[in-house]
């Protein structure tokens, strides 16, 4: 259980940022995982009054407030129309509807959990994060950083790529044993592996969308996997190319279906 003494409903990002500079502060987003992690803090900072729960679409991208729930993304028509329903697909296995209504995109992305389905998908879509101080940073770079005291305010998902997600799970709503997100854009295909079980990372970029089994096999051989109690390294390495192939194939299918909606 997370323990803290004060609760501040921030009235501005300035206030939230200032409070968050203390090591004894923590930002509360969905409070799904946070409450389980046994943190002891002085002050909890709530961003829920800052209007960060909206999905906005512009010419080139979707801009998603950090406090937007996974459920809102899952059911957002514009987002799913543009990306061939991949958000609905990728988020559906996460625990249950009530959980996804609580869990936020900002919480998921900031936490950089290895098991995150969301991070894998966003990486494949070349997403950026908007940080209060530092401004826009690519998610690929952010994924590799340590937790810091800046505030993630938005996630930006540029249009133009098609993505598909494949995963293996021990049971239908469990965290994944392995997740693979693939996307195809003008510069070719990109493959992301998550739940390796370490943080999701891009394992191939700019490859041909028609990559065959041997290419996927080679990518899997080069990637790093580990063992945890859900699966062994050997198992992950063995199924990774299968998921890659399937995700790539699914991308090309959604590409055909979804060409229109996003223009």
């Amino acid at each position: 259980m997370a323990v803290y003494k004060n609760y501040v409903l921030a009235q501005s990002l300035d206030e939230a940022y200032a409070l968050n500079q203390k090591k004894s502060s923590v930002i509360v987003a969905g409070n799904m995982w946070l409450r389980m992690c046994g943190l002891r803090k002085q002050t909890a900072i709530d961003l829920s009054a800052l209007g960060l729960d909206r999905i906005e679409e512009n010419e080139d991208a979707f801009v998603i407030g950090a406090m937007t729930s996974l459920r809102d993304m899952e059911t957002h028509e514009g987002l799913n129309a543009c990306f061939g329903g991949v958000f609905a697909d990728a988020l559906k296995p996460i625990v249950g509807t009530q959980f996804r209504r609580g869990a936020t995109i900002g919480g998921s992305v900031y936490s950089r959990f290895g098991f995150s389905d969301v991070s894998a998908l966003l990486l494949a879509l070349d997403a950026k994060v908007v940080l209060y101080q530092r401004g826009e940073v690519s998610l690929a770079a952010y994924q590799k950083e340590a937790w810091d005291r800046d505030i993630l305010t938005h996630v930006v998902i540029p249009k133009g790529r098609r993505a598909a997600v494949q995963s293996v799970r021990l049971s239908a709503t469990d965290i994944p044993v392995l997740v693979c997100a693939a996307s195809v854009g003008p510069d070719g295909a990109r493959i992301v592996l998550g739940a390796r079980p370490a943080r999701a990372m891009v394992v191939a970029d700019g490859i041909s969308p028609e990559a065959d089994a041997s290419v996927c096999e080679a990518i899997a051989q080069a990637a790093s996997f580990g063992t945890n109690r859900r699966a062994s390294e050997a198992y992950r390495r063995r199924v990774a190319p299968v998921l890659m192939m399937r995700a790539l194939m699914a991308c090309s299918e959604t590409q055909k279906d979804g060409e229109e909606e996003c223009k």
Partner: peptide, 27 residues
Amino acid sequence: MECPTMDDRGRTVSNSFLQYKIPTRVD
């Protein structure tokens, strides 16, 4: 799916519904 698991010091690590999966209605 249900897999009671202990570590090498005898601690039960399947100590929650997160780590000990029982069937959901979609399973």
